[in-house]
């Protein structure tokens, strides 16, 4: 049976969502997306370049008809800015599935949960289906879900830090309490971090910098694809218990 997951009524096979920022070129970005197997990419909403309108566009390289574009609100520090950005995104793309992030400060890029919750409520009223970047707080996660968030996306470490999953206990608590998909958004630095997130029972992982800033982003994209898949399989398989002391793998009976 296929191991798929659903968000806002859509079914996906890949549990890896990748960003489209920080790449050296559109070609490299497109190759990394292909290698990652991702079916969803995050995109930002920005002013068009009026002084040079002939510039190539992201949509020329990554086709929004085959890859689901998830518009984000990166760079927004208030609910109002985030909502305004997503209204434009909905008009540009024509879909309701969006990624909400309302940042609290530039130094840590931690989310401002008061503004995030406020924005979630308004967006849901307007028919949006927001996947929401949040702190690793099981209560805040529950409040977002009650407000209508279609997915909960706690950080594993600060955005762009590559520190790996620093908060396994709280991520697991969120997974256990959630009735909507939980995806680690931010903090993954290398393949084993993605596996850790999946072994905790997350439905998926979202990453950008870990792939884009790798020396070879296309190879790292493939590593991440495999890491997400193996972490997921390990979670489904159910890991062995941990012991304090050794337990021999060969039988003790019949020793000469």
């Amino acid at each position: 049976m296929a191991d798929t997951w659903n968000v806002a009524g859509k079914t996906f096979s890949s549990r890896l969502i990748v960003g489209t920022g920080k790449y050296k070129s559109f070609e490299q970005n497109a190759a990394a997306v292909a290698a990652s197997g991702a079916e969803i990419v995050t995109v930002a909403v920005r002013r068009v370049n009026i002084s040079d309108p002939g510039q190539p566009l992201l949509t020329d390289y990554i086709d929004p008809k085959t890859i689901t574009y998830l518009p984000n609100t990166a760079g927004c520090f208030t609910a109002e800015e985030a909502i305004r950005t997503l209204r434009l995104a909905r008009e540009a793309g024509g879909w309701e599935l969006v990624k909400l992030e309302v940042l609290g400060e530039a130094r840590t890029l931690y989310p401002d949960m008061r503004e995030t919750l406020k924005a979630t409520e308004t967006l849901v009223k307007e028919g949006f289906k927001p996947m929401v970047y949040c702190v690793d707080d099981p209560i805040a996660a529950k409040q977002l879900e009650e407000a209508g968030a279609v997915a909960i996306m706690p950080l594993g470490a600060p955005i762009g830090s590559g520190l790996g999953i620093q908060n396994r206990v709280t991520i697991r608590l969120i997974v256990e309490g959630a009735g909507v998909p939980v995806l680690v958004d931010a903090g993954v630095g290398t393949a084993s971090d993605a596996s850790v997130a999946m072994e905790l029972g997350c439905d998926g992982v979202l990453m950008n910098t870990a792939i884009a800033e790798a020396k070879d982003p296309v190879v790292m994209a493939r590593a991440m694809k495999l890491a997400v898949e193996s972490g997921r399989l390990a979670y489904l398989a159910g890991r062995m218990g941990q012991r304090r002391y050794a337990d021999p793998s060969s039988p003790l009976a019949g020793l000469i």
């Binding site: 790449y23 559109f26 995050t42 909403v45 009026i50 992201l58 793309g93």
Partner: peptide, 10 residues
């Protein structure tokens, strides 16, 4: 007017 489009982002 604000005229926007999708660009690369995380």
């Amino acid at each position: 007017y604000e005229i926007v489009t999708f660009v690369g982002g995380g």
